[in-house]
C-alpha cells in the first residue's frame, strides 16, 4: 500500500483526510503563524454538518457568531485577509440579520481552501517538517 506521506502529496484533500497528515500540516502552519487557516476550514465544515434540527438554532447562532468574531471580523487576521470583501459582507449580513444558514461559510471556506492549495500546501510539501517525516 502507498505510504501515508505519499498520499498527502497527491492533493490537499488527501492530506486533510488523514489525522496524522492534519497534525503535521498544522505544525507547519503554526510555525508560519497561519494555523488559523486550517482551523477555519474545519470550523466551516463542522458548522455545515451541524444538524439544522429544531432546538439546535441557538447553538448554530452562537457558533456562527463565534466563527465570525474569531476569524472574519478583524480585517488584519490571517483568515480575514484571504477572504474577499464581498464574502465578508455576506457573512456579516447573515450574522446581523440572524439569517443562519448551513452554507453561509461555504464561499469563505472555498477561498481559504484556494489560498492553502496555491500557497501553504505546496510550501508544506517542500518544508523540513514534511521532508523529515517522509
Amino acid at each position: 500500500p502507498t505510504p501515508p506521506y505519499l498520499r498527502w502529496a497527491e492533493s490537499l484533500h488527501s492530506l486533510l483526510d488523514d489525522q496524522d497528515g492534519i497534525h503535521l500540516f498544522r505544525m507547519f502552519l503554526k510555525q508560519e503563524a497561519c494555523a488559523d487557516l486550517l482551523d477555519f476550514w474545519f470550523a466551516c465544515s463542522g458548522f455545515r454538518k451541524l444538524e439544522t434540527a429544531e432546538g439546535n438554532d441557538e447553538k448554530r447562532l452562537k457558533l456562527a457568531k463565534a466563527i465570525y468574531k474569531k476569524y472574519v471580523l478583524d480585517n488584519n487576521a490571517i483568515v480575514s485577509r484571504q477572504i474577499k470583501p464581498a464574502t465578508k459582507s455576506f457573512i456579516k449580513d447573515c450574522v446581523m440579520k440572524l439569517h443562519i444558514d448551513p452554507a453561509m461559510f461555504d464561499q469563505a471556506q472555498t477561498e481559504i481552501q484556494t489560498t492553502m492549495e496555491e500557497n501553504t500546501y505546496p510550501l508544506f510539501l517542500k518544508s523540513d517538517i514534511y521532508l523529515k517525516h517522509a
Binding site: 489525522q19 474545519f42 470550523a43 466551516c44 466563527i67
Partner: peptide, 20 residues
Amino acid sequence: IDSEDDLLQECISSAMPKKK
C-alpha cells in the same frame, strides 16, 4: 469567552476525520 472557544473547538473536532 471560554464557552465560545469550547464551542469552536468542538465544531473543529467534529469535522476532522476519525482515526483509521
